[in-house]
């Protein structure tokens, strides 16, 4: 039980359901996610963990035929209510994807893209500062500071992913969502990203979907286990991994299903 009492709840999901056309992908999820913690979402393929993640910044809106029910609140404000503007919401909730997806632009423009569209840094000097700060936070500054004009697609896989993290935190979000950010990377690049996540936890609330249970155990404070669109178990990572209450969870963690 790591300081769970002290943490305040950042994201509150209540009765969240998701339909893709006729098919139901999530069956009423109730889940609280704490600020300044890393929460890992685990479960077998197709269990709905990525779908749940995409509910938090309303990325499911993009998908045709996708309907979301229930409520997701950030700082006690329902993000599915009419007053919420999805564009502003996404400036508060950043996201990093499975496959590094730098825009076909320079490294600088990749990071500057978010601040530019939101008008966060009106002057060039401010923008330069944001870019430098973000790249530093993402641990990429030293590697790219001499070639900010080089295309982002020219970096290595691990560097690209850190560039995407820099791009996400450049708009100064409160929450960062990560959808299997290391699945396309080699073990060394993965280690670098994991360290970075541990760093970022101090300033951001992080929700990460991962296939690797070792990774979940290494980096997260809390873990939620999803199965067939249901939240099966949720609790402090240590507890989940050492004495899971649910049989399904145990079977998955010990490698019997998955």
């Amino acid at each position: 039980m790591v300081n769970s009492e002290a943490s305040e709840v950042k994201i509150k999901a209540r009765e969240v359901t998701v339909h893709y056309g006729e098919a139901r992908a999530l069956h009423g999820i109730d889940l609280d996610l704490n600020a300044n913690e890393v929460t890992a979402l685990i479960g077998p393929s197709g269990c709905g963990k990525s779908t749940f993640l995409r509910c938090i910044n309303r990325m499911n809106d993009v998908i045709e035929g996708c309907r979301v029910g229930g409520a997701v609140s950030i700082d006690d404000q329902n993000i599915y209510s009419d007053e919420i503007d999805v564009v502003e919401l996404r400036a508060r909730v950043g996201m990093v994807f499975q496959k590094p997806n730098p825009f076909p632009k320079s490294i600088y423009d990749n990071v500057a893209y978010g601040p530019r569209i939101h008008g966060m840094a009106p002057s060039r000097a401010q923008l330069d500062a944001v870019v430098e700060a973000s790249l530093k936070r993402a641990g990429l500054w030293e590697e790219v500071k001499d070639r900010l004009d080089a295309p982002g697609t020219g970096l290595s896989g691990g560097q690209q992913q850190r560039l995407c993290i820099a791009r996400a935190i450049a708009v100064n979000p409160a929450i960062v969502l990560m959808d299997e950010p290391c699945s396309a990377l080699d073990p060394i690049a993965t280690a670098v990203i994991e360290e970075l996540i541990e760093e970022l936890r101090r300033d951001y609330t992080i929700v990460i979907v991962t296939h690797s249970m070792q990774q979940a155990a290494r980096i997260s404070q809390r873990t939620a286990y999803f199965h067939l669109g249901n939240l099966v178990e949720h609790g402090p990572t240590q507890a989940i991994f050492t004495k899971p209450e649910n049989q399904q969870t145990e079977a998955y963690i010990s490698g019997k299903i998955g």
């Binding site: 910044n57 400036a91 950043g94 730098p102 825009f103 978010g114 569209i117 939101h118 791009r167 996400a168």
Partner: peptide, 20 residues
């Protein structure tokens, strides 16, 4: 993934199309 990347940063659809 590029469209998702831009959308996740809070770009509107036309910004995503025009700029990405």
């Amino acid at each position: 993934t590029l469209r998702d990347g831009a959308a996740a940063l809070g770009a509107t659809q036309s910004e995503t199309i025009r700029q990405v």
